[in-house]
Design a binder for these strands. Structure first.
Lengths: 209, 209
DNA sequence: GTAGTCATGTAAGAGGTTACATGATTAG
DNA sequence: CTAATCATGTAACCTCTTACATGACTAC
C-alpha cells in the first residue's frame, strides 16, 4: 500500500487536488514514487472513505468544481505508523538481469543494443537525480519550500537530509547499473573478438544461408 | 511476460516437471527470477496451449502421474525473439526510498532499524550472489552443467560469461544498497547527535508527556 | 473558435501474493 | 504408521498498465 502513503506524505506539504498530485506522480521525473491518474483518483476516494484525508470542494469558474484534499490527524497517524513499521524484503524481479543471463539466445547486435539502452537510461537518470540533489540544496523545489514553511526551523535539517538521502540512493543505484552495463559491453566485445558464436544469430537471419 | 520467458529459458537446459521448476523459482535464492507455484502451474498450461512446450505425461508409482515439459522449436523461437527485442524502461517504485524520503515522520529507532534491515538484507544477498558466482566458476551448478552438456563446446564460454554477468549485476546492486544504508545510518547519527527532533517521536509514545 | 490545460473519472486485463485444497509416494 | 517430499491445482485479492471517456476553463 505504498501509493497511499506516498500520497499522504505529499499532502503533508500542503493541500492539493488530485490533478496536482497526478503531476507530481506522473512526471518523467517521478519523485521517489510514480503512478498514473487512473490509480490516483480512485485511491484518493478510498482514502477519503477511510477518513485519512479531508476534502474541500472548491468551485472553479461558473460550472466546474475541484476537490482539494488535505491530510488530517488520522492520515498523519497512519503515515507515521507506516513509517515506523518495518517493510519486509522479498526478492524482486529484474527483466534486464533475466535477459542478460540468457544472452546466448540473442545476437551480439541485439545484446549490445540492450546494454546500450541500459547505459543510456541510467546515465540520464543519474543526471536527473544529481540535478534534483542540487535543487534540494539550493531550495529550488517549491513543494519542499512549502513543507519547510509549515514546520519549525529545528526540523528543517532532518527534512532536507532525508529527502537527499532518498535520491542519493537512486544515484548510487544508477552508478551501479552504469558500471554493470559497461562490464557487459566489455564482455560482449571480448567474446565476439574470440569468435564465440551465439545461438540467436541463426534465428536472427531466418532468410540467411 | 517475463515469467514465461524465464520458464522457457530454464527448460532449454533440460525437460522438467512443474514441481522441479517451482523449486528453481520458489527458493529463497531465486535464480534471477522468482515465482510461486500458483503462478507456474497455470503458466505452463498456457504455454502448452500456445504450443511453446511439449508435455509428456509420465506415470509415477501406481496411481500418480507427472507432467514433464520440454521446450519445442516454437518455444525456442519465442525465447530468442524475446531476447532480441528491446525491453523498454519505466520508472520503478522502491518503497524503501519512499520511506527514507519521509523519515522525519518516523523515530530514530525505527529509522535505524529499517536501515539496519536493509544492510542486513543486502549483505546476506551479496554473500549469496558471490557464492553463486563461485559455484558457476567451479561448475558446481547442476542445471548449468546439464545445459553445457547440450551445447557445443564453442558456445560454453558465452553461456558461462552471461550467467555470471547477470549475477555480477546483483553483486554491484547489493554493494550500492549496502553503501546507501551505511550513509543513511551515518546521517541518522549526525542528526541525533545534534538533537534534531523527528516528528514521529510524538506518535511513537502516545502515552508519553 | 480552438488549442492547451485543468480536472476527474471508469474498465479491462496482466502479473503477483496469499491462502485454500488435495492426494500419492517414499523413507524411516 | 507417519512424516517428509513429490506433485498439481484453484480462488480471492491487490497493484499496476493501458485504454476509453468526458467536459470545463483560459489564452490566443
Amino acid at each position: 500500500m505504498s501509493l497511499r502513503h506516498a500520497l499522504l506524505a505529499t499532502l503533508t506539504a500542503q493541500p492539493m487536488t488530485g490533478y496536482e498530485l497526478v503531476k507530481y506522480f506522473d512526471g518523467s521525473v517521478a519523485y521517489v514514487w510514480s503512478a498514473p491518474h487512473s490509480q490516483i483518483y480512485p485511491e484518493l476516494r478510498r482514502m477519503e472513505r477511510d477518513g485519512l484525508v479531508t476534502v474541500e470542494v472548491v468551485p472553479r469558474g461558473e460550472r466546474a468544481e475541484k476537490r482539494v484534499y488535505s491530510i488530517n490527524e488520522a492520515g498523519l497517524a497512519e503515515l507515521q505508523r507506516w513509517e515506523q513499521a518495518p517493510i519486509p524484503y522479498q526478492s524482486d524481479r529484474d527483466p534486464y538481469r533475466l535477459k542478460v543471463a540468457h544472452f546466448e539466445q540473442s545476437t551480439y547486435e541485439a545484446a549490445r543494443s540492450q546494454l546500450e539502452a541500459h547505459l543510456h537510461h541510467f546515465t540520464r537518470a543519474l543526471r536527473e537525480w544529481e540535478q534534483i540533489l542540487a535543487d534540494i540544496d539550493a531550495r529550488r523545489v517549491s513543494l519542499l519550500r512549502r513543507r519547510l514553511g509549515q514546520r519549525p526551523e529545528e526540523e528543517h535539517e532532518a527534512i532536507i537530509a532525508f529527502r537527499k538521502l532518498a535520491f542519493r540512493g537512486e544515484v548510487l543505484k544508477a552508478r551501479a547499473e552504469i558500471a554493470w552495463a559497461e562490464e557487459g559491453l566489455a564482455v560482449l566485445d571480448e567474446l565476439q573478438a574470440k569468435g564465440v558464436p551465439l545461438r540467436g544469430e541463426e534465428f536472427a537471419k531466418p532468410a540467411g544461408h
